[in-house]
Simulated scan of single mutants.
Amino acid sequence: MATVAAVAAVTASLAGCSSDDKSSSDAKGSTTTSSAAAVTAPAPTADTLQSVLTAFADPAKPAADKAKLVVDGDKRLGNIDTMNQGLAHYQVGFAVGEIKQDGTKADAKVSVTSPHGTMPDVPMSFQYTDSAWKLSDAGACTILGMARAACQ
Rank of each mutant, 00 (worst) to 15 (best):
K61G: 11
M124S: 01
V110R: 00
G117S: 09
A149T: 08
A95R: 05
A27N: 11
S13I: 05
W133A: 05
K68N: 07
S25W: 13
G86D: 09
G73W: 01
G73M: 02
S30A: 13
D130N: 15
S125G: 15
V71S: 13
G117T: 06
A95I: 02
A8S: 04
V39S: 04
D102P: 01
P59H: 14
K61M: 15
S18F: 03
M146W: 04
D121W: 08
V70G: 00
F126A: 03
T32D: 08
T82G: 11
H116P: 01
K105L: 12
V110L: 00
T33P: 05
M146V: 03
A63W: 02
M124I: 01
G117I: 05
T11D: 07
A36H: 06
V96D: 02
H116V: 09
K109S: 01
N79Q: 03
K75G: 12
V52Y: 00
S131A: 12
P62Q: 12
P123G: 07
Q101D: 00
A41V: 00
D20V: 11
G29S: 13
L49Y: 05
P44E: 00
T45W: 01
M83W: 10
S24A: 13
H116E: 13
R148C: 03
A150N: 04
V7F: 09
M83N: 06
A12F: 08
K68P: 03
T3H: 03
P120S: 11
G16A: 15
A64K: 11
T82F: 10
V10K: 15
V122Q: 04
K22V: 13
A43G: 12
A149W: 05
K22R: 09
G97Y: 00
S34M: 09
G78D: 13
G29Y: 09
S24N: 09
G117W: 06
K100A: 07
V92E: 06
D102V: 14
Q101V: 02
M119S: 07
T40R: 09
R76D: 10
P115L: 07
F126Y: 01
A108P: 11
G86E: 10
D72N: 07
S51Q: 10
L49C: 02
L77W: 07
G103S: 02
K22H: 10
S25V: 14
T45R: 04
E98N: 14
Q85W: 10
K134D: 06
Y128C: 05
D81H: 08
A57T: 05
M124V: 02
T31R: 15
V39K: 07
Q91V: 15
G73C: 02
A6D: 09
A37H: 06
K105F: 14
M146I: 08
A55P: 02
T118P: 05
A55D: 10
T104E: 07
S23I: 04
Q152N: 15
A41D: 00
R76Y: 15
M119V: 15
M119E: 11
G29L: 09
W133C: 02
K75D: 15
S24F: 09
D21G: 07
R76N: 12
D121M: 08
A60V: 10
N84R: 03
